[in-house]
């Protein structure tokens, strides 16, 4: 049993193909999951527990919420157009350390509580409208 003699130990031009592919994928992911990237007035923080959306908090309005999920309690705070986990009794504290997020596509994840906070932009359109508005 011996090493394959044909092993290439020096980086070559073909490797650049792989680097390019990874960069392309990163760019695609960036483009796909940060569509606008910028802050805009109609964003909301979508709070999910166990993959199910429990609440959409508009970012334009201050709010304090407490969520209890899988044995942990997290306090989520919306202020100044951003959202953060202000307090959590989870062991990792990663959610608290993430700090404030305010741009579309950003998210806070608390794995122990299986809770996520993701920022979504304004709903991109609708299929139907209810309410007739002022009668003509």
């Amino acid at each position: 049993m011996s090493m394959n003699r044909s092993v290439k130990l020096k980086p070559n031009a073909a490797d650049l193909l792989i680097v390019a592919a990874v960069l392309l994928l990163a760019a695609l992911a960036l483009f796909r999951f940060f569509p606008g990237g910028a802050r805009d007035g109609a964003q909301s923080a979508v709070v999910s527990i166990d993959g199910k959306i429990v609440e959409r908090l508009p970012l334009f309005q201050r709010a304090q919420r407490s969520y209890t999920a899988n044995g942990y309690t997290l306090r989520v705070s919306v202020e100044d157009g951003g959202v953060r986990v202000a307090q959590s009794d989870c062991p990792t504290q990663d959610c608290v350390h993430t700090g404030v997020i305010s741009r579309r596509g950003q998210s806070i994840v608390c794995l122990p509580a299986r809770l996520t906070v993701t920022i979504e932009g304004a709903p991109d359109g609708y299929d139907l409208v209810v309410g007739q508005g002022v009668a003509e």
Binding site: F33, G105, Q106, R114, T118
Partner: peptide
């Protein structure tokens, strides 16, 4: 694990 798309960010 989380059941939603948040980690894709």
């Amino acid at each position: 694990t989380l059941g939603n798309a948040a980690p894709l960010a």
